[in-house]
Design a binder for these strands. Structure first.
Length: 609
DNA sequence: GCTACGAGCGCC
DNA sequence: AAAGGGCGCTCGTAGC
């Protein structure tokens, strides 16, 4: 018994892994995980189970379910898939109804938390330096279990399946204690959200799809080479830059266009000398936009379940700041997935995609957006209590900034700016742009575009230079923070740089090196890094933890959340629900961020907006 | 035929 | 010395 007390893992946890049939057409990319397991071709031909006293690999039907102890829990690598397969097998009676585990745990999410590598292969390589052979997976494309048996590959396949579960169990046992409880809860919440999905207004979606299709057809007509074939009989792609180049040179242009990007000043300059090409470029841009939108809308359309809901994709810890990201993990090609975090914010070509996301009957949406969460976190991180105190008194943050740094001493800046006051408006916009855009070491040139985007502020380069310089001069705590982070990283050259966050976790920058500038490894990429960027990462990470803790609070209060988009939470609650409850749960300052004034904008929504 | 990568564009 | 950041998806092209 004394040994058991020393276990730093739960012996009731067993690792599971299914092997399921797939081919080039029938896969997650084309059907989504839910559609895949409900497809007639669905065939979970193998399951491996590994844990205390059990190592099984074989058909699910013959698995030793009776040997699993009461209250056993399942560890899987990618719960977004495995947790759909399991109940589907129960429905199909290849797994007994009463065999369900008491809980689930996802080692993919654990790996994301630990090392930023999501696939089992990459996680094991990163954490143990061992290469897991994934050859069998490719081999099995388009092959059934009996194909493998006939080909004499059964044993190899079994070994491969067993290996995955062994590694999964090892990840769980070795690292589970490094995964904080709250993060495990967030992993669970994320799964619940994706499985729950969102109700879709199908009529609206259908008519919108028709509109976009029409616009797409119209755009095709403006692309001269559309539908043509090259010498080899291959279709010339509508967005082919080579075709565009050829067309331009054949039609009196001396040079090819520098890009086809909408709004690119270089393109604009080129077009002013080649006006006759303008309609072609425009058609390419319209085709590109409508095509992408159409794909997205049709994917949603195709994935609507019989109950009228669409199960979306959202990844726990998709970003290295551990923010959620869109997409899914199954398969290497990140295609055919719908990212709910970048849905167009307004109508495009007669389709308002967000309007198609509606509450289930008897429910309403609550959209809860944190106001200026990042600047507030940054002020807290650098210890700018003065500004935070002004905000705590009820001052709008941009106004607080203006009073502190821009010499504003008039009345309510926001109210005056809203009324179009000629003196207040530029100051308000300048403050907004500076607060949102200048905190991360942004230079003057970049600040012009940031200011435009964040505060609709149009400025010249000298003005941008002045605002940025002013920001740095009046915010020495922030510039010092940049330097502190950068110096910390410089002291870590040759090793990993760990930044301890105020919450329960750290950020890790692996393998810091100097190649001209500072570089390090983030996920599987080598990136350039400097103080301003690190500051941005840390601020994002802290804001993420704030929203993460809020999500857990909402969940514990029984409030159904659908998804999060960085600083906003979409809740689905009964029609008579009191929105104040959501607000109160969200603005509660975390213990580890004492004194931070949080604010959320809450709105009832008849659709997602 | 498959993979990798950049361009372009959508979001916060 | 100076440098906003974080994502995902589609398409086209290049390279193996």
């Amino acid at each position: 018994m004394s040994n058991l007390n020393k276990l730093n893992y739960d012996p009731l946890v067993y690792a599971l892994d299914f092997e399921t049939y797939y081919d080039s057409e029938y896969g997650i990319s084309n059907y989504g995980a839910w559609g895949y397991v409900h497809h007639p071709k669905f065939d979970a031909y193998l399951i491996s189970i590994v844990g205390d006293g059990i190592e099984y690999v074989g058909p699910p039907k013959e698995a030793p379910w009776h040997l699993l102890p009461a209250g056993w829990k399942a560890a899987v690598h990618n719960q977004g898939f495995e947790r759909l397969v399991f109940p589907r097998c129960q429905e199909l009676r290849t797994i007994p109804k009463d065999a369900a585990p008491a809980g689930w745990l996802c080692t993919l999410d654990l790996s994301a938390y630990l090392c930023r590598h999501r696939s089992l292969h990459d996680a094991v390589l990163s954490l143990y330096g061992v290469e897991v052979d994934k050859g069998m997976r490719d081999y099995m494309r388009g092959k059934t279990w009996s194909d493998a048996v006939t080909a004499g590959k059964a044993e190899e396949l079994k070994k491969y399946a067993l290996d995955d579960s062994r590694w999964c169990l090892k990840l769980y046992r070795d690292f589970n204690t490094s995964w904080p409880q709250i993060e495990q809860e967030l992993s669970e919440i994320t799964f619940q959200e994706t499985a729950r999905g969102v109700a879709i207004n199908e009529k609206l979606l259908d008519s919108g799809i028709q509109n976009v299709q029409n616009a797409n057809d119209e755009a095709k007509k403006g692309i001269p080479w559309f539908g043509e074939e090259d010498e080899k009989g291959k279709e010339v792609k509508p967005l082919s830059v080579l075709a565009l180049k050829k067309f331009c040179l054949e039609n009196g242009c001396e040079t090819k266009p520098p890009s086809t990007e909408d709004g690119d000043p270089l393109l604009e300059a080129w077009l002013s000398n080649n006006e006759h090409i303008r309609p072609v470029i425009k058609a390419m841009q319209t085709y590109r936009s409508t095509n992408a939108l159409l794909k997205k809308a049709c994917t949603i359309r195709a994935r609507i379940r019989p109950d009228g809901t669409f199960p979306h994709d959202l990844k726990y810890g998709g970003a290295h700041t551990l923010r959620w990201s869109g997409g899914w993990d199954e398969g290497r090609a990140e295609s055919g997935s719908v990212n709910v975090q970048n849905l167009p914010g307004s109508e495009m070509y007669g389709l308002h995609l967000r309007k198609c996301f509606v509450p289930r009957p008897g429910f309403k949406f609550i959209g809860a957006d944190y106001s200026q969460i990042e600047p507030r976190c940054l002020w807290w991180l650098v210890g700018d209590w003065e500004t935070l105190a002004l905000i705590k008194q009820g001052l709008n943050p941009y106004e607080a900034y203006s009073r502190k740094n821009l010499g504003w001493d008039g009345g309510s800046l926001k109210a005056l700016a809203k009324a179009g006051d000629a003196k207040a408006l530029p100051i308000y916009k300048t403050a907004k742009a500076a607060v949102l855009g200048a905190g991360y070491g942004c230079g003057a040139e970049k600040f012009i575009t940031v200011a435009k985007q964040m505060a609709d502020l149009n400025i010249t380069l000298p003005e941008a230079e002045r605002i940025v310089a002013e920001f740095r001069r009046t915010n020495p705590k922030i510039t010092k923070f940049w330097k502190t982070l950068e110096n910390g990283m410089r002291r870590s050259i040759g090793e990993d740089y760990l930044i301890e966050l105020p919450s329960w976790r750290s950020m890790r920058y692996r393998n810091v090196k100097v190649f001209g500038g500072l570089t390090c490894q983030v996920g599987d990429k080598i990136v350039k890094t400097w103080g301003g960027k690190l500051c941005e990462n840390v601020t994002q990470a802290v804001a993420r933890d704030v929203i993460g803790e809020a999500l857990v609070r909402l969940e514990k209060a029984g409030i159904r959340t659908l998804f999060t988009v960085h600083d906003e939470v979409i809740c689905e609650v009964p029609l008579d629900f009191d929105n104040k409850i959501v607000e109160q749960l969200m603005i509660e300052a975390p213990d580890w961020l004492p004194g931070i004034p949080l604010e959320v904008e809450i709105k009832d929504m008849e659709y997602y907006k």
